[in-house]
Design a protein around this nucleic acid. Structure first.
Lengths: 150, 150
DNA sequence: CTTGATAGTTAAGCTGCGTTAATTATACAC
DNA sequence: GTGTATAATTAACGCAGCTTAACTATCAAG
């Protein structure tokens, strides 16, 4: 087996382990907040990108603008998202998280990383350093290849 | 920032990058096969575990047995899953993938790891070795802590 | 053999998300 | 200014998946 093959296998295996574990916590978060998968997806996107338009949301989720608009509507009603006019183009609505929305996401993130803390403590400092370096490398490479494609 | 904190952050960042990229391919796979997220989830579970009962499916997905049964029913009708009686307890139906179901999953997996191949090739062999070792370590530790909890 | 628990299925109904089509407001080219 | 394209919204409707409740078959304990 080539080393490239070996690497992709290892990445896949880790991802499956990670996701399997994360799914449980994610489900619980959904139950607790009453939010759907799609809604959390939108909030996460806004949490990372600070601002984007309704069409951006639709594009990222791979759904129509109408669907994105409805999704956003719900989140605005719940007080997690706010709309404001884009000064450069008054047709587009800039979306952003409210304080309440940001708090919610941070809560969700920390809830889902509890088990990662446990995981970290099961490793020696040397192992942790190595893994940090490895994942930074991997993340950077992934971002580069993604940017290269566009 | 503590090293544990640093490690969990790095893991989160990588996961986000990975998922963001995988989402696109996953969406395409769903469109192509006409399968839903839940259905693929069931198939994946069966792909890895070879066999399980209807209740197992429900438990893993966090839904009622009725819902799991309906989900399975659809997959059986499509020819991806087959039911057989458990010889030890005739109440339970052992589920397993058909050849066609197995082929489908393998196809999906290789489609989703194309970009990982590109990613691998952007790294030097030394880097790849390091990452392989790191992820193996991480995966093993995660599986250990998960088993310890139960 | 009876009783109670468990596995799975089916039916009926609800909800949420998606779609298309129509509508409004704005931008931009000519 | 007129005409066309784009951003967002809304309405109407369909579909998938979930739930509860009722039912069947099987197991296991007494």
């Amino acid at each position: 087996m080539s080393i490239e093959q070996q690497l992709t296998d290892v990445i896949r295996t880790w991802s499956q382990t990670f996701m399997r574990r994360s799914m449980t916590d994610f489900k619980r978060f959904m139950k607790e907040t009453g939010l759907s998968f799609a809604q959390i997806n939108v909030l996460m996107r806004l949490y990372h990108d600070r601002q984007c338009s309704v069409s951006d949301i639709g594009r990222q989720l791979g759904v129509s603008n109408a669907a994105a608009s409805q999704l956003v509507h719900g989140l605005v009603k719940m007080g997690y998202v706010e709309r404001s006019e884009d000064p450069h183009d008054r047709r587009v609505k800039q979306l952003s998280l409210t304080d309440s929305g940001r708090d919610l996401m941070e809560e969700g993130i920390s809830a889902r990383s509890c088990w990662l803390q446990d995981l970290a403590q099961a490793l020696t400092p040397e192992q942790q350093h190595m893994i940090i370096e490895a994942l930074q490398l991997l993340t950077r490479a992934a971002q580069d290849t993604m940017n290269a494609e566009t």
